[in-house]
Design a protein around this nucleic acid. Structure first.
Lengths: 102, 102
DNA sequence: GTGATAGTTTTCGAAGTATCGAACTGTAAG
DNA sequence: CTTACAGTTCGATACTTCGAAAACTATCAC
């Protein structure tokens, strides 16, 4: 595998290496799953993603940025709120890297 | 997902978050794949896994320990050498966490 | 025993990370 | 215009991590 690919992969894994950040991502993933039942990709407010994590606003903002920079989630403003969604391509890359005939 | 599970997952991701360590793991994964053709789980010397990585022995030793502690690989001594193999359960956990109906 | 090989432990400095509080920037509502 | 809300940026602090050098341990060959 080319060095650049390994580096990008490592960056994704790093984004998931912090428990709080991982929780954010898993919550979003779970929301996406639920929402697929309704036939569309789900978007989610930040507040909703926190789900009991006791973190300050600046910290959350930082974590969301890390996930976005790593290519794992997508964000967009909608009025006052920030809407997050899982980036399907990033997720697919992760899964592909871990998939073997093993 | 329970906090303990999230923490253990985060630890696995952290083990893969360093490019050099990720390369070690991917090399081992690749070796495992090749060897499945011969019908057994593959073991591999450290030296072989390095594959051009320019790292000192202490650094490699440290990385291997991190991967083992995270539950991603299994190690055992064989004479002078250390034999590494992928831990199938750890790998399965990772994959399960990233697998959705998404 | 000696020497060589393969890996480990300890320790260090440089660099990076997590979290927070305070101050700031939109955006919507009144 | 003012207030409140949602998130961001900045700066500080405490902590972690990567990689290396030096010294160590364990194993094999002689």
């Amino acid at each position: 595998m080319p060095k650049d690919d390994v580096d990008r992969l490592a960056r994704m894994f790093k984004a998931l290496s912090n428990p709080n950040r991982l929780r954010l991502f898993l919550n979003l993933l779970e929301e996406s799953k639920l929402d697929l039942a309704k036939g569309r990709i789900h978007d989610c407010f930040l507040v909703k993603l926190l789900g009991g994590l006791e973190l300050g606003a600046p910290t959350v903002s930082h974590h969301v940025k890390e996930l976005a920079d790593a290519g794992l989630i997508h964000t967009q403003r909608e009025g006052k709120q920030l809407i997050c969604s899982v980036d399907p391509e990033g997720l697919a890359e992760l899964r592909a890297a871990l998939t073997t005939t093993f």
